[in-house]
Amino acid sequence: MSDETLLAARGLVVRYGSTDAVRGVDLEVRRSEVVGLIGPDGGGKTSTLRVLAGLLRATAGEAEAFGADTWRTRRALHHRLGYLAQRFALYGDLTVDENIQFFALMYGVPAWKVRRTELLELVGLEDFRSRLADRLSGGMKQKLALACTLIHSPEILLLDEPTTGVDPVTRREFWRLLADLVGEGLTLLIATPYLDEAERCTRVLLMHDGRILADARPQEIPDLMPGSIVEVTAEQRTRAAEILAEIENVADVSVFGNTLHVRVEGARDPVAVVRTALGDSGVPVEGARPIPAGLEDAFLYLTRSPEPEVLMEASS
C-alpha cells in the first residue's frame, strides 16, 4: 500500500515562449510520503506542481496522477488532489464559514458541514467562524486557505511555497499542522526555497534551472558529495580562508558568520588537515570540528559539477 505511486513525471518539459521552465524532470511521489521540492526561485518548482495538479499542460513528457495523465483526467483529478497556490484566493467579504462552504459546494462534497467543523478545529479557527476573511491575520488566512483546499478530503496535497516570508513561529505551527494531516494519511508534495525545510520531509527533490539535481532522503544529503565538512573558528578568518583554499585536499571554503565551512576531500583525518595547514602558517585556530554537510553544501557541489544530470537514483 505505502509503495503505491500517486504522482509520476517522466521527461517532463514546460516551455513558455522561448523559455524552458522545466527541462526534463523525472519524479515520483508515493502514498504517505512528504516530498520536498526544494530550490531557488525561477527553478521550475511552480510549473512542475501545476502540471502535476492538472492545471497546466506539459509541453512534452508525461505527468500522471493515480496512474492517468494529469491533463486528460484533470476534472476527475481535482476531486482527489488538493492544491494550495502561493497566492491563494479567498473571498474577503465572506466569513470563514462561508469560504469553506463555497469550496464544499464547488466540489460537491456531501455532508460537508461535519468535515468543515473537523477542519476548523484542526487549523484552530473554530472561534473565528463568523469573521470575514479580510479581517484575519496572514497566518490565519493561510490556515483558512488550507481548510478550503482540504474540504473535499483529497488523498494528496500539493503546496506551493506555503512558508515563504513566514516568520519562524508561524512556520513551525504550519509544519505542525501538516504533520497532523500526514498522521491522518495525507500525502504531501511541498515546494519551498528554504533549504532547511529538507529535514521536515521524508524525501527531497533538489530542483534548479528546470532540472532535478538530486533525489534523496534527508539523511542521505551528506552522501551527495564527496569529502566532509570541517567547521573552523579562527580570529583571522579571512587569512585562514585564503590559506585553506590553497591546500590540496581542500575542495571548497565558504564563510558562515564567525566560522568557515571547509570541504576536505581524500583525507583520512580532515580536521588534522585543517589544523596542520593553519598551524604551519601561524594562524591560531579556536576550533575545528567535523559537521554534517547540509543541503546548501550539496547544492553548491552539485551545481558546479560538470554533468549535473548524472546523479543519485530515486531512493526506495
Binding site: P40, T164, V255, L300
Partner: peptide, 24 residues
C-alpha cells in the same frame, strides 16, 4: 531586508562573500 530570500545558493554565497568583504 531579507536580502537573499529565494536566490540560489551559489548567488547567495557570492552575495555574502561581498557582505563579508564589506564587513572586513
Amino acid at each position: 531586508d531579507e536580502p537573499t530570500g529565494g536566490v540560489d545558493p551559489e548567488a547567495r554565497r557570492d552575495f555574502w562573500d561581498l557582505i563579508d568583504d564589506l564587513s572586513e
